[in-house]
Design a protein around this nucleic acid. Structure first.
Length: 469
RNA sequence: GGUCCCAUCGUCUAGAGGCCCAGGACGUAGCCCUCUCAAGGCUAAAACACGGGUUCGAAUCCCGUUGGGACCGCCA
């Protein structure tokens, strides 16, 4: 049974890189009908916050990456770690270190300034009896001879020389355990079979492998995912723009589009670009995961989002766009929305809007009482020459029994052939009258969606405007 | 600096020794469609980092060089 976990530390929001790690874990679990576990790595109490824990969970929910066990919190499990630490001490595999952080820092600086690699010298290894009344940390005795081979599902075999590894601190002087240790204990306790994480952890892996052996457990399989980089090829971070997953939600992206984008960063399936969740689960495999890092490209994400908008059901989009309509001030909180009508409006717009934010903005002219004319559009199209045209059209439309796009089109066609003009010469002024601007869906559908009453009202207003020019 | 990882169009990638004077997608440019804007269709420019091997044959295997990245905490 495959058991994997996503183990974020709540020292920030769920970001793009973390989300992709979570996603690959989730896909691997679902593909293999295994379990996906969520574990919060909050052993650093000074930097972890409740707010971040909430935000990470919210991000996971939004992306619909559901987990089967957890969220577990390491701060609830300190007793467990203490037991393992004591065992290692009793077995002589760990020892008390009385060096102070200040001393350590000083030695590190000295090593660096002399061009040496900083490494703990192991001086406290030899202390036999505990020194009373002196604070101490616990260090793990790292083997200093031989090598470790990490068999990685993505990178292949990676070899490390043991003499490069330090005796790392597994428990701080305040009694709290550290990352490289708790990770191993938890992965053992939670029976994790595959550790899938960013390749920034690859250098930690040999240390962890030695902890597994010291504890007497078999190592899990490893898969180290290549990093996601910003446009300057450094690790993706705030200065590259939005990196929080929830920021993309707020910018009007669809979670499935983000998931699709993220999965294609490093994974491929022939030439296919767009995948349903079902396909993703079915096709996912580490065989098709690349080894090299990838640059986050917001333009491709935007394109994917527009593709997902086009393919989305209008009723679904209706529900999703409402918060954005409120945020744009187009409707008020608690406003009763006619979903049926909104869906029809969205049908005309969804292939034009790349995000829910854009969709909300485009809906303004359908929903608002009045439109505001864009200056250029108004000056160009609401001219005295069009006055008669608009007046005649207005009366023909008023007489229409069935206010449908095709009936409206018939009316337009009659008018343009009578006046021997091109459709654009009539459509553009009408478009400005209806939307205030020069860009919109097909004019007949716009009128149908808007409804006779609003159409007549807006034509009247345009006519009045021209008269008053 | 040390350790480790990586290297195909600007970007994401296909490529498992001959199917490749390298395919798809985003972006860019042009054309078509057209009531505007999109969407869609067609076309174009655009890459195997470099140098050595191995082989009848290398984008693919090996070595080196160069370049990029990550990590080197009583952070995770």
């Amino acid at each position: 049974m495959v058991r994997v976990r996503f183990a974020p530390s709540p020292t920030g929001y769920l970001h793009i890189g973390g989300a992709r790690t979570a996603l690959f874990n989730w896909l691997f679990a679902r593909h293999n009908r295994g379990k996906f576990i969520l574990r919060i790595e909050d052993t650093d109490r000074s930097r972890s916050t409740e707010e971040y824990i909430e935000a990470i969970i919210e991000g996971m929910r939004w992306l619909r990456l559901d987990w089967d066990e957890g969220p577990f919190r390491q701060t609830d499990r300190f007793e467990i770690y203490r037991r393992y630490v004591e065992r290692l001490i009793a077995e002589g595999k760990a020892y008390r270190c009385y060096c102070t952080p200040e001393e350590l820092e000083e030695r590190r600086k000295k090593a660096l300034s002399e061009g040496r690699t900083p490494k703990y010298d192991g001086r406290c290894r030899e202390i036999r009896e505990p020194i009373p009344d002196r604070p101490f940390a616990i260090r793990f005795k790292m083997p200093q001879e031989g090598q470790v081979v990490i068999k990685d599902m993505i990178k292949g075999d990676v070899v490390f020389e043991n003499n490069q590894l330090d005796d790392l601190i597994i428990m701080r002087s305040d009694g709290t355990p550290t990352y490289n240790f708790v990770v191993v204990v938890d992965d053992v306790e939670m029976a994790i079979t595959h550790v899938i994480r960013g390749d920034d952890h690859l250098n930690n892996t040999p240390k962890q492998v030695h902890i597994y052996s010291a504890l007497g457990y078999k190592t899990p399989e490893f898969a180290h995912l290549p990093m996601i980089l910003g446009s300057d090829r450094t690790r993706l971070s705030k200065r590259h723009g939005a990196t929080s997953v929830l920021a993309y939600r707020d910018m009007g992206y669809l979670p499935d589009a983000l998931v699709n984008y993220l999965v294609r960063l490093g994974w491929s399936y022939g030439d296919q670009e767009i995948f349903s969740r079902q396909e993703l689960i079915e096709y996912f495999s580490f065989e098709n995961v690349g080894k090299s890092s990838a640059i986050f490209n917001p333009e491709k994400l935007l394109w994917l989002n527009s593709q997902y908008m086009i393919r989305s059901d209008e009723r679904e989009l209706s529900e999703l766009v409402i918060p954005f309509l409120i945020r744009e001030g187009i409707i008020h909180e608690g406003h009763k929305v006619d979903i049926e009508w909104l869906s029809r409006a969205i049908r005309t717009l969804k292939e034009r809007a790349k995000t829910l934010v854009e969709l909300a903005k485009m809906l303004r002219y359908y929903i608002a009482e009045e439109v505001e004319y864009e200056e250029k559009a108004r000056d160009k199209f609401l001219t005295p020459e069009t006055l008669r045209l608009l007046q005649e059209l207005r009366y023909s439309l008023e007489g229409l029994a069935e206010f449908s796009a095709s009936a409206i089109e018939d009316v337009f066609r009659k008018h343009i052939s009578r006046h021997k003009i091109k459709l654009g010469q009539l459509a553009q002024p009408v478009r400005v009258a209806m939307t205030g601007g020069t860009e919109s869906p097909g004019i007949f559908e716009v009128l149908e969606v808007m409804g006779k009453e609003k159409v007549l009202k807006r034509l009247d207003r345009a006519i009045e405007y021209i008269k008053g020019r």
